[in-house]
Amino acid sequence: MLTTAPAKYRRKRIDPLVVLVFFLLAGVTAMLGRTICIMPQQMPGLENEVARHLHNSGVASPVTAVLLNFRGYDTLLEVMVLFLAVLGVWSLTRATFVGYMGDVSPVQLAMVRLLAPFMFLVAAYLVWQGSHLAGGAFQGGAVLGGAGVLMLITDLPWLPMVPARPLRCGLALGPVVFLSVALGCLIWSGGFLVYPLQAAAFLLVLIEAACALSIGLTLAALFVGGRPYGELMEEQPYEGGSGQGDE
């Protein structure tokens, strides 16, 4: 739509409002930049605190320790944000994209068949590696999501037939596991998200694995951009024939 702009669009008159916005923003940015320049540059953050408590966190990687232990509540809510995104997207529309995007070349098909299992392996490795080096649930989940998107655009025949119930359970797995571990800690060691020291490493890996799976599924589901056909099928036998809009 934008590529075929007629000639008169090219010679746009300059909107005075746009100029005003430009200069206003430039001024504000300059002020903010000046503040950054005069601010002290090397304030100590929380790295010493993290280093002091790292041995009690159950993992060796400081980022993972912050993510899942010290600020685990943030991450719990963040997993909920992803879950909420799927909820929101599914509430809006049914999936119109079922994976078919023109002809799939045999090369692509073969490549994806080779790549997808490999990507699953990489994802699992990233999750496991997260406990001592860079990596973790989100990195692993992103790779899983990428594998899911690849499989979706390659039109694998079994994908549209994934039943809705296991899909729902997979999407909710991460939030459920995280929340139950957090509540289990409440009962076991007396505080929300207070991991018992001897079990911390195991619990963190458990949470990471469950979250990675859910994140991968979530990203693929967001790519599809609507609830799958199995979802709500029983309740709305007639909606299929009534076109797109349910206004």
């Binding site: 809510l77 879950f83 909420l84 909820l87 509430s91 709305q236 036998p237 007639y238 909606e239 349910d246």
Partner: peptide, 26 residues
């Protein structure tokens, strides 16, 4: 008025509203 529409709305209303409530309390 249209079969299925209200079921969809109700189906998604509850989880969304509960999530919103939890977030407000947080």
């Amino acid at each position: 008025k249209r079969v299925g529409r209200h079921e969809r709305q109700e189906r998604f209303f509850w989880p969304l509203w509960m999530m919103l409530w939890a977030a407000m309390n947080g």
